[in-house]
Design a protein around this nucleic acid. Structure first.
Lengths: 217, 217
DNA sequence: GTTAGTTTTAAACGTATGTTTTAAACAGAT
DNA sequence: ATCTGTTTAAAACATACGTTTAAAACTAAC
């Protein structure tokens, strides 16, 4: 047995979810791609919802754990720069590197994660968002706490909004990465990688974090 | 007859699409909310796909038309600032104001638009993206051309990526606006409007547009 | 008032989906 | 080798969906 049924399902589901979204991909396409019987999903994961949760947990579990470690290491580090924007890039780099390390070559994982965030914030009810917050909120709150230090000249509410604007850059880029990379290759004959995109985004997010707050427009 | 069947369908579809997405909302929920017979959708719009197109056309048609006018007025205007970032805010403000003017109080319209962009870029095939580009690409290319002038220190490819990072801010904020506004009200007892969010985003996008390009991280 | 064209209605159709069921195949322990 | 619990397999189930049909209701012109 090269790989277990469970792993083959998770891998196939991850790829399909990343490419077509959660509701758009059926269990039948997943199970045929995984070369597994249809009923296997409900046997091992209970339901489609359980499968989605398992796929995302496989990424978010290690990610939040690694993030916790890396952030506390960053917090204890002494060689902080005086340049606030530089320091923002470093902090955002901790998150980016943690994502990359957990995704480990697998370009689907980040796309699934981005889709998850997207759907979580697109639901008016917000059940998924509450679940994510309850399950993995601690690590991300920690990250936000450190980020907050480098964005001092705003109220908590202003920080809330600004944070989600930054999140938008990341989520949109990752969930659209497949299409964007394809366009980029066709239009500019340039073969980029997800890692390069991540590196590309960091200074953009850092600048966006420091943008002035203007009342009018 | 207070409002025609077609308009009632469009209004109901717009609200449901904005709240739950295109695939997640059924024709039955739309027609019951519109107090219209189920078959009316297929009679008037041919198919669900036709309905989606009609909903988005109702927004994108006027928007691109208005944008075309406003942008050429902007291009001809003489009181340009020497401050590049300020000028970026003005140009982005043209887009924002056009969106607001066309959306006209209807907070669903912008959310549907954002969802459309999101799904267009989330499809690996990209049929929807090509359709939008073919139908409404001219106005947005015009906008990009003007934007390009204020982001000179990068290659065309770098501009391509940067543009989509900016797009991410807008799309995520708009498609998540309902959830974000709800959280904001609950957490900070602050009643914001979509217009305020738009005004809030402009300087962030302007700063992000001018962020430096760093090779490493 | 009749007629021709349009719109609305109720019902049914075909299909795709997630899920369940029941039995068979398998694995490891005794 | 037998037994026990676990996993796989094929089939069926129930439901929700988009779509189509055919008749009824409506509208406006003659």
């Amino acid at each position: 047995m090269t790989s277990s049924t469970i792993d083959r399902i998770l891998d196939a589901a991850e790829a399909e979810f990343a490419a077509h979204g959660f509701v758009e991909t059926s269990l039948r396409t997943i199970t045929t791609k995984a070369k597994v019987n249809l009923a296997a999903v409900n046997y091992h994961f209970g339901s489609k919802k359980g499968l989605i949760q398992a796929v995302t947990d496989r990424f978010l579990g290690p990610l939040t754990h690694l993030l916790q470690v890396q952030l506390s290491a960053y917090e204890k580090s002494t060689n902080k720069s005086d340049d606030n924007e530089q320091e923002l890039r470093v902090l955002l780099g901790v998150l980016a590197r943690s994502c990359q390390q957990v995704a480990q070559q697998n370009h689907h994982r980040l796309a699934v994660f981005a889709r998850l965030i997207n759907t979580a914030y697109s639901q008016s009810q917000g059940h998924l968002r509450k679940h994510l917050n309850h399950q993995y909120g601690a690590s991300f709150l920690y990250f936000m706490k450190l980020l907050r230090k480098h964005m001092p000249v705003m109220t908590n509410e202003q920080f809330f909004w600004r944070f989600h604007y930054l999140l938008g850059i990341l989520v949109f880029s990752l969930s659209s990465s497949e299409a964007l990379l394809a366009i980029c290759e066709r239009e500019y004959a340039s073969n980029r990688s997800l890692d390069q995109i991540m590196a590309d985004i960091l200074p953009v997010m850092a600048s966006a974090a420091q943008a002035p707050i203007l009342g009018d427009f």
